[in-house]
Each structure stands twice: as C-alpha cells, then as structure tokens.
Amino acid sequence: MIYKNFVKRVIDFLLSLSAIIILSPIWIILIVLGSIAMKGNPFFLQQRPGYKEKTFNLIKFRTMSNAKDSNGNLLSNEVRLNKYGRILRSTSLDELPELFNILLGNMSIVGPRPLLPEYIPYYTEEEHHRHDVRPGLTGLAQVNGRNAISSWEERFAYDLEYVNNCSFLLDIQIIIKTALKVVKRSDILVGSTVVVGRLDDIRNNNNK
C-alpha cells in the first residue's frame, strides 16, 4: 500500500520530469514537424476520466488533420490520418505529451489506459475499480496484446488484475515489456482498423 499510495507517485514525478528534459530536442522537432503536417496546432487535447473518475485533459500529439469537405464537415478518419500521423502512431511518439499529464499527477507511467468519459455509465460495478489507481501511459493490457485485444472484457480483466496486484516489481516488468513492444512495433494498429469497437455501442447492442 505504501508503494501504491505514495512511492509510485514520487517515482512517476521524477521519471516524467527527467524524460521531459532529456527528450527536449525531440519535443522541438515534433512540435515543428507537427505544426507543418497538421497546418496548425500540433497538440490534441481530450477529456478523459482519471483517478476516482475525475476528468482531466489528456494531451497527445495530433495524428489527424482537420481537413473538411466543401460543406465544412470533417473528412473521414482514414483521409485525415496522414503519413506523418501514421508514423507517430506506429512509433508511439504521439503519446509523448502524456509525460506532462504524469508530471501533473493526472496519470501514472503504469496503469489502466484512460478511456472516454462516455464509457463510464456502461461499466459493470467491478469495472469501475479500474479507476482506483491513476490511468497509465502503458499498462498490463497493453503488454498483453495492446490494441489487438479482441474484447473489452479482456482489457478490463487485465486492468483489474493490475489494480489488485500493483507493485514496484510489476511496474518494472510492464515498463520493460512496453519498451520492447515499442522497439519491435508489435501489436500496434494504425488507422481506422478497430478490433474491439466502442464500448457504449457494444453494450447498448447487447442490452437490446
């Protein structure tokens, strides 16, 4: 409990601050390239539920442009996801700004990935416990299939397993496995390919 409630946060703060400083040259390059590729703001902000389901602004590098049709409507995701965005996603570089979320205490290095706020009403009573810890940059589900996991139930099972077994050793194991997956670019789906689908759509259909 000491690690989960105190030590983990100290480690998150120190490691995220160090990473932000060390990676500052990459930050500058990606901000410039992103501004050009996206023709404007290179950052993407979106509300996500965090610890105890309190929402925060998740920050990432944008991977889709704001290209619109003649009527002013956004084009499809496949069209707006340009080559630059695909590279960011395949290398996980789009996730780098989340280091600031970790520094501020909205997130942790390891924990259940933050999902959309509109999914919360569709959780089971047990699934709400995935928010008993801060959401993570990576997590147990990500090193056991990442985006290729075929069901929400499987993802949530990994999230709850992490919440119930959170420890320094487990975090180290997840970080090492994540680094290997990023280097190998394994279990990463880029573009409009969706294996699981939206949680609200799936559970609404199941209740019909």
Score class of each variant (00 low, 15 high):
His128Leu: 15
Thr138Ser: 14
Glu98Asp: 05
Leu116Met: 13
Ile87Met: 14
Ala157Ser: 14
Ser35Trp: 13
Glu161Trp: 04
Pro25Trp: 09
Arg80Val: 09
Asn164Ile: 00
Ser18Leu: 15
His129Met: 11
Phe44Leu: 01
Ser192Asp: 15
Ser18Gln: 02
Ser24Cys: 06
Lys184Leu: 10
Leu96His: 05
Leu23Ile: 11
Leu75Asn: 10
Val79Cys: 01
Ile11Asn: 07
Tyr84Ala: 06
Ser70His: 12
Asn82Met: 03
Asn71Pro: 00
Pro49Ala: 03
Val143Cys: 03
Leu160Phe: 05
Val32Leu: 15
Glu153Phe: 08
Thr91Cys: 03
Ile20Ala: 02
Ile59His: 00
Met64Ile: 09
Phe168Pro: 02
Ile188Asn: 08
Leu99Tyr: 06
Pro117Phe: 04
Val183Trp: 12
Cys166Asn: 07
Glu95Thr: 08
Trp152Ile: 05
Lys184Asp: 10
Lys4Gly: 01
Ala148Pro: 00
Gln46Glu: 01
Thr91Asn: 03
Lys52Asp: 11
Thr178Lys: 06
Phe56Asn: 01
Ile175Tyr: 04
Ala19Gly: 04
Asp187Ile: 02
Thr178Leu: 04
Glu98Arg: 11
Ala179Phe: 15
Asn71Thr: 11
His129Phe: 13
Val195Ile: 15
Arg155Glu: 07
Asp132Asn: 15
Arg185Leu: 07
Phe6Cys: 11
Lys8Phe: 06
Asp171Phe: 09
Gly34Tyr: 09
Tyr123Arg: 05
Ala148Gln: 15
Asn147Glu: 13
Asn57Phe: 06
Gly197Ala: 09
Ser70Trp: 04
Ala141Gln: 10
Ile20His: 06
Ile36Tyr: 10
Leu189Ile: 11
Val183Thr: 09
Asn66Gln: 14
Ile22Asp: 02
Cys166Ile: 12
Gln142Ser: 07
Lys208Leu: 14
Trp152Lys: 09
Ser65Pro: 04
Phe100Gln: 00
Ile109Glu: 00
Ser35Ala: 14
Asp94Pro: 06
Arg9Cys: 02
Ala37Gln: 13
Gln142Glu: 07
Phe13Val: 10
Ser18Thr: 14
Val133Gln: 05
Arg198Asn: 15
Arg134Met: 10
Ser16Ile: 05
Leu81Lys: 05
Val79Tyr: 11
Asp201Asn: 14
Leu169His: 04
Ser35Lys: 12
Arg113His: 06
Gly85Trp: 10
Ser192Lys: 10
Asn147Tyr: 08
Asn71Val: 00
Gly191Arg: 08
Ile174Gly: 07
Ile120Gly: 00
Met38His: 06
Arg80Thr: 10
Phe43Val: 01
Leu169Val: 13
Leu160His: 02
Gly40Glu: 03
Ser65Asp: 08
Leu75His: 06
Asp171Leu: 08
Leu14Cys: 14
Val32Asp: 01
Leu23Trp: 09
Ile59Val: 15
Ser108Asp: 04
Asn101Ser: 11
Asn73Gln: 15
Ile2Ala: 12
Ser150His: 12
Trp27Phe: 10
Arg48Tyr: 00
Arg185Thr: 05
Leu199Met: 15
Ile120Gln: 02
Ala67Val: 06
Asn73Glu: 14
Pro25Glu: 10
Asp94Glu: 07
Leu74Gln: 09
Gly139Arg: 10
Leu88Asp: 04
Tyr158Gly: 01
Met1Val: 11
Phe61Ala: 01
Arg48Lys: 12
Ile31Trp: 02
Asn164Arg: 15
Phe61Asp: 01
Lys4Thr: 13
Ser186Tyr: 02
Glu153Met: 05
Arg198Glu: 15
Ser70Val: 12
Gly40His: 05
Pro97Leu: 05
Arg130Glu: 03
